[in-house]
Design a protein around this nucleic acid. Structure first.
Lengths: 146, 146
DNA sequence: ATATGTGCAAATGGTTTGCAGTGAG
DNA sequence: CTCACTGCAAACCATTTGCACATAT
């Protein structure tokens, strides 16, 4: 887990360098995704922000997440069942383990993926820039409940 | 690559055992996904089927793919950019390499994933049933074109 | 014969877009 | 002061649903 404060500073720096305006709504989004608590969906971010800025629109959330995604400051996770989730705390590819019953998403690590990526590139001639590795199953709690 | 004929027979067998009716439209879908040519989208399957059964509806395609997915006879690939794709020829988890420029999808293999899956299960206490491993980058052809 | 499947059209839900008004720089 | 950003509503698009009719078994 990275330091949320540092992540926030890094994000504001990158957006400023890109010539983006740092509106209160945007800063609110940055704060939420920099925290690294869970893997929030757009709607969860929207709900959190409404407490401070009740008139914020979904379009603004999408806009800001898009900027962060384009600058590599946020990792977008695409799940068919859970929809898109966002991780601004560790915005680089890493494995996730998803409970198909309760939706819990666990971060994991698998250092060998760098080597595997390289091997795939050599074997196929592709230039590989990114990967997704997701495991699906039942978390310990859901296993017990049958 | 599995034998398309055998795959088709296996699919019809499983659907029959499930008590499903084998309508001409369904058989047409089975044939397409059993072939294993590329990784067709719902729309691509729809277009292919319209040549033989012009009145077929999209709902029927979705219905049939759903059945095959539930019985494990088709692997559904979920890509944020390319949408859902279907593979009935090798309907078990395996890595895919996606060209982010032209959309080409390459099947690959990585036998060690079984062991990795097991390791993840032990480390996290999850019961792991499925995984997705996708690499994204540029195919050899698209690399040349800058 | 009958329940399952089909086609059609409408509903859904997440994301994007267009635009007039607003506020960060 | 100005242009990028915001909020709102409409548009989009893949997928799902409801229902009357058709048909595989």
């Amino acid at each position: 887990m990275n330091d949320p404060k540092e992540r926030l500073e890094q994000m504001t720096k990158v957006l400023r360098e890109k010539g983006c305006r740092l509106t209160p709504q945007r800063i609110a989004v940055l704060k939420i995704v920099a925290r690294g608590e869970g893997h929030p969906s757009v709607d969860q971010i929207y709900e959190l922000i409404k407490t401070d800025f009740p008139t914020t629109s979904l379009a603004t959330i999408y806009n800001t997440l898009g900027l962060l995604k384009d600058t590599g400051e946020v990792l977008e996770l695409n799940f068919a069942n859970l929809g898109n989730r966002y991780d601004g705390n560790q915005p680089y590819p890493h494995p996730h383990i998803v409970c198909t019953r309760c939706g819990q998403i666990l971060d994991s690590e698998f250092p060998a993926m760098a080597a595997v990526s390289l091997e795939m590139a050599q074997k196929t001639g592709y230039q590989i820039n990114h990967y997704q590795l997701n495991f699906f199953g039942l978390c310990p709690k859901c296993r017990q409940q049958r």
